[in-house]
Amino acid sequence: MIGMSDVYLFDEPTSGLSSKDSEHVMEIIRSMAHNKIVIVTIHQPSSKIFQMFHKAILLDKGGRLVFFGTPSDMLRYFAEAEHQHQFGAELGACPSCGTTRPEFIFDVLETPLRDLSGDIIYEENSRGQLVASRRYSPEFWRDKYEAFRLIQDVKQVSLRQEAAVCTLPVGAGTEKAAPISLAR
């Protein structure tokens, strides 16, 4: 009866813990993960913990999926986004430098909106608190990610088609191309 479950879900198992204790808890969770599906929510993981995961899901305000992939792909994606939009040098990362800090992802995601003189523009949130306005909304990031995913899918299909052309007599029918999902 022991070990019946195949899927484990942990909600914030490391909240309120020191970084060392968090790592310890994650080690234990990882040792359980062997051959199972384990999903862990973490508010903002440390770099070391972030790299322990095979995949990471990033949600933005309003429950929008803004990235799903390996931790290194996620860092690369946001480093490139920052580079593309020239978000300002103060974040200090470029695609070639290769940052490992997951905090960087949030810095890019929540890039503040600035006026001409460079001061951050503030707005009131639903609870009446003053918060920095965001330059890019959750919708922006969701759309950007969907476009990214679509391009990845198309790339994969064309790669497989190329492969299929080379090995047509053998490979025919064994592998189906991933369907392209046009969500919107």
Partner: peptide
């Protein structure tokens, strides 16, 4: 809002996001 992804066994997956982004709901 319209979330899709898939996970296979053996994978350890992290859900990140600010508070109020729907981690616990998911």
């Amino acid at each position: 809002e319209g979330i899709s992804f898939s996970i296979t066994r053996g994978e350890l997956v992290c859900v990140m996001g600010a508070s109020g982004s729907g981690k616990s709901t998911l």
